[in-house]
């Protein structure tokens, strides 16, 4: 039951509330889903085919558009009313993805291509050896793990996190924490306004590491033998270190710098009114884990997805 899609539109509809279709994907094609409401979950398999499973209302169709390098999967309703569709996709490992949804979570696992995923109200999570990742949410958490290349993670009102990543990282929130762990990157930029910034990972020679918060603390685990020129800036926050600091030269109480080891990396630590803390790897970990556990517990509170019927036009009758 595999349909070959070249440059054509294939409409895959079902009367029931479940769609399940599999089609061959051109190698190198990018898959796009622009969903209004509902979750998007993506996994991989070794076949060179895309399987789309969707749960939706009875008036909804699922359409697959294949054109040049892009395969677009979308939900349609005859009346053009936005609708809630939960998509489950199984894609070839090397495929690239561009996924968006308004009310719903996105969960991508195992994809090796470039992944862009954004939600307005839901959580976004991208795990696996992606070539690059852009993951963002306004209201939900955004997290990335295992990516090989460039990583951009952002949330507005919740937490942003990245772990086991190696490429350049840019990660931010406004009202949320920013957490980086098991990082093997030489280019890290992490910032939030009202939240904590935590870092645990490599400090590479000639690498650049910039951490900033307005209200919250900055906690960075610096490996024993790391060499870095460190600058610390705060307005009304504090500074503490779990290991001795080799002070030298002039310093003001709230802005100063020092050099660790060969000074090869550059580390900037900035918090307007939070605590800036240096630790050794491992020491802060338990606390971080505890916090993460608390967070995930809190997150499993009931979600409020709209799954009302797709229209109510009574009373608006012409």
């Amino acid at each position: 039951m595999i349909a070959m899609l070249a440059v054509l539109t294939a409409a895959v509809f079902s009367t029931a509330t479940h769609t399940d279709t599999t089609f061959v994907a051109r190698s190198g094609a990018r898959l796009e889903i622009n969903n209004f409401g509902g979750d998007i979950a993506v996994e991989t398999w070794t076949r060179n085919a895309v399987r789309v499973e969707a749960d939706h209302g009875a008036r909804v169709g699922v359409v697959v558009d294949a054109d040049a390098g892009v395969v677009e999967v979308r939900a349609t309703t005859r009346l053009g009313v936005p609708t809630t569709v939960d998509f489950r996709l199984t894609v070839p490992r090397g495929m690239s993805l561009k996924l968006t949804t308004i009310h719903g979570d996105i969960d991508v696992k195992g994809v090796e291509g470039d992944v862009e995923a954004s939600s307005v109200q839901g959580d976004v999570s991208v795990g696996g050896p992606a070539r690059s990742v852009k993951a963002g949410s306004v209201e939900g958490d955004a997290s990335v793990s295992g990516a090989r290349g460039k990583v951009e993670v952002s949330s507005v009102n919740a937490d942003a996190s990245a772990e086991h990543v190696a490429g350049p990282i840019s990660i931010s929130s406004v009202n949320g924490d920013v957490t980086l762990s098991a990082v093997e990157s030489d280019d890290v930029e992490a910032s939030t306004i009202n939240g904590e910034v935590r870092y645990e990972g490599a400090i590479r020679d000639r690498g650049s590491y910039r951490f900033s918060s307005h209200d919250g603390g900055i906690t960075v685990a610096i490996p024993d033998r790391a060499g870095a020129a460190v600058s610390v800036s705060t307005f009304s926050g504090g500074f503490s270190s779990a290991f001795p600091i080799p002070w030298s030269g002039a310093r003001r109480s709230n802005q100063f710098s020092f050099t660790l080891g060969n000074g090869g990396a550059r580390i900037e630590l900035e918090s307007f009114q939070g605590e800036i803390r240096l630790q050794r790897p491992g020491t802060g970990k338990d606390r971080m884990k505890e916090r993460d556990a608390e967070k995930s517990k809190a997150k499993h509170r009931a979600k409020t997805h709209d799954d009302g019927d797709d229209e109510s036009d009574e009373g608006n009758r012409p």
Binding site: H103, Q121, E139, V156, N157, V174, I193, N194, H214, D215
Partner: peptide, 25 residues
């Protein structure tokens, strides 16, 4: 969505407050 609007406005207020504090500093 009213909820999203509320969240955005709340975050804008957070940033405005931070800007105000930074300006005074």
């Amino acid at each position: 969505d009213p909820r999203t609007l509320q969240v955005l406005e709340q975050n804008l207020r957070t940033i405005d407050r931070a800007i105000g504090e930074a300006r005074r500093a």
